[in-house]
Amino acid sequence: MSSSTDSPTLTTETTQLSPQPDTETAKPTKKITLKSSDNQIFEVEESVAMEFATVKSFFEDSPSTDTVPLPNVTAKPLSQVIEFCKEQIKFKANPDEAQKKKYNAEFVTEKSDKDLVDMIPVANYLEIKDLLDVLNQAVADRIENKSVEYVRSFFGIDNDFTAEEEAALRREHAWAYEGVDED
């Protein structure tokens, strides 16, 4: 058992037989600890953590773990993603499409451009499909009809084209640059 990190195949079966998980699930709200890449600790209810497909499969592979390290995720976007998933759990228990739509709209409206963009890779990594859709739609709405320069600064993208390369690309697809708003 002590070498379980190297050979996880058999440990799943043994832990299922041991009494430990039963005593734990008997508690009304089991907490799961998530650790961000900047070493912040988040205690979340199991039902919330199971919204994260990546965390869920982590537990399926090694059920005896108590802390899930998230090496690709920093604390700020993680806390916002947790906030979103907590609400989604409530809507799962009491389905109300109109309220859910309203919540999702408000959730993105109050976020800065940077917050939205920073959450996208987190939602993708944790495989939260609903949130990824909400974020991508919000981003699409915010950059609608905006200039290339605006979109670059929105995403925080470094332009690595030379001026000549960029001019040639713009000429090649001149049709795409008509009807763009002034910044």
């Binding site: 991508n136 739609q137 699409a140 979109v151 690309l169 795409a176």
Partner: peptide, 21 residues
């Protein structure tokens, strides 16, 4: 993931992302 993001944009706008970087 960038393809997913671009797939939320209207086509003309998606085409303009080619000069971002």
């Amino acid at each position: 993931l960038l393809i997913i993001i671009a797939s939320f944009l209207p086509f003309k706008e998606a085409a303009r992302t080619s000069v971002l970087s």
